[in-house]
């Protein structure tokens, strides 16, 4: 067991040493692997941030009920109170036309325009917050019911665009999986081809080793470790690229968030994401090496 372990350690180090002695070729291969893996990971991080943003809003399912202009404020208050008693509705907030105008005056910079108006053009508005356990279909039905009330002019479901964003994110997630599968396949091919060249370059050594009684496992081992090192280094490069991207995007993301009146801490790769990148890199490296070895090593038989 100790000898077995020592052999593996020795193979692994020997492979590493061989890569180290050809720094340029190794660097290029590792960079290509890193970039190929960084691409889907970057998309993943973008979607993750999109989900975080959307998640902040999907929980908000409030909708606005604009009442008929000129409806007396007492009737609006009664309607609000009656709605609030329904089990499907958690809370109703009445924004009177006067409040809305006052808010618009302070917030929008329309003071001059508003002062020029003879009368308040805004309706009273009810902001309805559905109960937490109400499902989307029930809320939609409720909105339709409210639309039919004579006092109501317009019901606007704010959750429509959230649903669209969700759909977009789902689409993006699927697209990322496809891209990831393609790029991991590319990494397998890259590693496989690199190892194939390695095998050709070491043909003489392989032949001699086989003549001296080396088993297939003995001959195979250093190449598998080479694939593993390529994968590990490529995964490391991918993670470094992601860190760099994050640093570059932090400033613009903060400005963007500030414009929307919130603070936003851009998310990096999750811990599972880091593990996925490294795992995919290692697996692809090993798979590429295995393919090359299975395909080309058996063909080398000593000729004397």
């Amino acid at each position: 067991m100790r000898i077995w372990l020592a052999r593996h350690v020795q193979s692994a180090l020997a492979s590493l040493g061989r890569l180290w002695r050809q720094p340029l070729g190794t660097l290029l291969t590792v960079l290509v692997i890193g970039i190929a893996l960084a691409l889907p990971a970057t998309l993943g991080v973008l979607v993750r941030n999109g989900e975080a943003v959307a998640g902040r809003w999907t929980s908000v399912r409030d909708f606005s009920v604009y009442l008929q202009p000129g409806l007396p404020v007492e009737q609006a208050g009664e309607l609000a109170a009656s709605l609030e008693r329904r089990p499907l509705i958690a809370a109703v907030r009445l924004i009177t036309a006067d409040d809305a105008l006052a808010e618009l005056r302070t917030a929008g910079g329309f003071a001059g325009v508003i002062d020029a108006l003879e009368r308040n053009p805004l309706p009273h508005t009810l902001v309805v917050r559905p109960a937490a356990d109400a499902d989307d279909a029930a809320i939609a039905a409720l909105a339709d019911e409210l639309r039919a009330l004579p006092a109501v002019e317009l019901v606007q479901l704010d959750s429509d665009w959230v649903a669209r964003l969700d759909a977009m994110l789902a689409f993006a997630r699927r697209a990322i999986w496809i891209a990831a599968a393609l790029l991991v396949t590319a990494v397998i091919v890259i590693v496989g081809n690199t190892i194939r060249l390695d095998i050709q370059n070491q043909r003489a050594e392989i032949e001699v080793a086989k003549l001296l009684g080396a088993t297939d496992a003995f001959v195979r081992r250093p190449f598998l470790y080479t694939g593993l090192w390529y994968g590990l280094a490529g995964g490391g490069v991918a993670l470094l690229l992601l860190l760099a991207e994050q640093a570059l995007l932090a400033g613009p993301a903060a400005r963007l968030a500030a414009l929307y009146g919130g603070s936003f801490e851009p998310l990096g790769l999750s811990r599972g994401g880091v593990a996925a990148v490294l795992g995919a890199a290692l697996a692809a490296g090993l798979a590429g090496a295995w393919l090359a070895v299975a395909r080309h090593l058996a063909a080398i038989q000593p000729r004397v």
């Binding site: 003489a204 050594e205 032949e207 001699v208 080793a209 086989k210 003549l211 001296l212 009684g213 080396a214 088993t215 297939d216 003995f218 004397v304």
Partner: peptide
């Protein structure tokens, strides 16, 4: 492989590995 490990082989062109030292070549078996 196990069969070959029981036999020592010497070749006309000696088949030493040029990138390894004498010690490493002899150590290979």
């Amino acid at each position: 492989p196990a069969h070959r490990r029981q036999i020592g082989m010497v070749f006309q062109d000696h088949k030493l590995l040029p990138e390894r030292t004498v010690f490493e070549n002899v150590a290979l078996p």
